[in-house]
Amino acid sequence: MTSSAPQDPPHADVQNGGAPGGPRVGLFVTCLVDLFRPSVGFASVKLMEDAGCTVEVPAAQTCCGQPAFNSGDRDDTRAIAASVIRAFEGFDYVVAPSGSCAGMLKKHYVELFEDDPAMKARAEAFSVRVFELVSFLTDVLGVSAVEARFDGTATYHDSCSGLRELGIQSQPRKLLATVDGLELTEMRDSDVCCGFGGTFCVKYPDISNKIVGEKTRTIADTGADLLLAGDLGCLMNMAGKLKREGATIEARHVAEVLAGITNQPAIGGGRR
């Protein structure tokens, strides 16, 4: 892995904890990765360890709270947020392999504690340490290349929260360009929602299906072998639809390819 100082390091005010071998990172696994695709977690750990981080995984984590937050259940969200903040205090950085969960931790926790100045201050101190995985590697650690190989053509979908809440767009493409054997081809409207939307896809399945159907069409039109994205929720939605349509294109989390961990079946794919 190649590192170079980023030109304008954001959050330079966040101090490293001085742990031997570089910053101490708490991995926020995300519930979907924990339950459905542990290899994304291991890929994340590998990428960060290769970049010189010490990675730990606090056991007292479950989910970022978005299902409750977006269902209007503020009290339970607050309780979950407080326990996440508690579990990750003391790390230099908190990193999640998901733009959606990182966005929740970084952008929305603070607004939950408007009426509680003490918790609000803790949430603020927490939020500046939170990053999405690829953005952390590139924007914070200055990683500009990875050592990985994947033979094939891939297309990258920009998941909504990562793109619009955290500004993640060029970073994964830059790193993917350094994967040996991988060619990147752009789909039309890569920045348009895939129709997942958390509980939306089961509350309004007809509409969600229409939106994901448009998405799989643009994916198929690229002729790529591989669909990549940075959020497992969107990936499961798109992969599930592609499989139902009988498409052969495979889907993986971007971290798997960047870390060179691709011997496990693709998302929704069986053992060969």
Partner: peptide, 16 residues
Amino acid sequence: GWTKYRDLPAPEGGTF
């Protein structure tokens, strides 16, 4: 709501 229109990818097995 999910499987009406799409397959549900199976978990790899065993949590992270």
